[in-house]
Amino acid sequence: MDAGQLAVIAGPNGSGKTTLLQALSGLSLLASGSRIYQGSSELSLWLKESHYLGHKLGNKGNLSCFENLQFVAQVNETSVTSSAISAVLEKAGLAGYEYQHANDLSAGQKKRLALSRLLLLNKIYWLLDEPFVNLDYAGCDWLYEIIEKHISQGGSVILTAHDQKKIHELAHHHITLEFPEEVHES
């Protein structure tokens, strides 16, 4: 896959979309480490440039939005100022919620908080498992926008989606998984 491209993985339930994405993220292959990225099977290199967002959002419920993002930045060894974190939250439509605990957000807002990690970390590859679920129209539009912007800046996005015509129009690659042929990562 080249820089600046979007791949959409589609397929019915149970066809292995999540498995494929997890394998790509490095979660499933942590132990064996048999992935090749830029000619190197070194996992850490890939982890440095990719970010995976799965069904489980990864927000800590009793930390505020600000603290959640601050932790993500620190654990990724990305130095960001607190005004940068606030700016990211504002872009994600969470302005004014900086000190709200993640537990107190609505489902859509939680999703936005998780997605805002993408803006915070500036990684090249985004791996998104069903990113549109739980988002309202405005949220979906916002997500299209940031994906489009990311691609135009040379980033790459791989995502799974059920029924999003608009994202398919945007996509460069369509990967359709059919039911009997489950994806076996080996």
Binding site: L27, K48, G54, K56, G58, V75
Partner: peptide, 16 residues
Amino acid sequence: YEDGSLDVYVLSGMSL
């Protein structure tokens, strides 16, 4: 593990 934040720091490149 349940809220997914394990993925966040495991995939951050932090050594396990």
